[in-house]
Write a protein that binds this DNA or RNA. Structure first.
Lengths: 102, 102
DNA sequence: TTATATATATCGGATATCCTATATACCTAA
DNA sequence: TTAGGTATATAGGATATCCGATATATATAA
């Protein structure tokens, strides 16, 4: 039995990959940039142990690539395959949550 | 390593509770009604083993209650606590996914 | 050179989601 | 009263998400 918090109905898991693709669809970013943007949106900053494995999985799937590397800072961008995956996921997202925002 | 499908970036887990609260915030429904509505939205119908444990958890958390029972058909509705949880989650959802739909 | 801050990386594990399979209860029609 | 359809229920387990702790590499400042 999941333990819902006092006023929380869910933890919105499973959306991290989608959000990363969304952010990268707007502009290339590196890991910490993505983590900071997610902190602004969700209210809590994903830890290194969350963000880097997620990036690795998406890269492994061919959805993003390292665009530039300066020191340890790696800038990621979407591949065409990643853009396609994002658009498909976005359609599904839109249909699923139709009416929630309004 | 998660196995992303050929064109799928994520499975959007973790939103089931939120979606159920959303649907019930519009009108009371019973389990199968909720499952059918989710089928229309997501494209696949959640199995009994998915929907009933989810309802049980939300009921256990005090977010919904059995409003009516006719035969085996149980109609659920949100409690005030559930409405509050939904509104909080909705605000967070809106802020998190700002700009995705547009 | 040393110290500090930043960015990336990975392991191990806790937790939640979700499904398959199975069982039960109720209704209606024949 | 028997059969078929519908709705609910739960156990068991596969899988994925996510985080805490820890380690490494680079750049910069003192």
């Amino acid at each position: 039995m999941p333990r819902y918090g006092d006023e929380e109905c869910c933890d919105m898991r499973g959306m991290l990959g989608f959000l990363i693709l969304f952010l990268l669809s707007k502009k290339p970013m590196h890991g910490q940039e993505i983590a900071d943007e997610l902190a602004k949106r969700r209210g809590d900053k994903p830890s290194p142990g969350t963000i880097y494995p997620a990036l690795k999985s998406l890269k492994y799937a061919g959805f993003l690539r390292e665009e530039e590397k300066v020191g340890k800072t790696i800038t990621y961008s979407l591949t065409p395959r990643g853009m396609k995956a994002f658009h498909i996921a976005k359609r599904r997202f839109t249909r699923t949550f139709l009416g929630v925002l309004s």
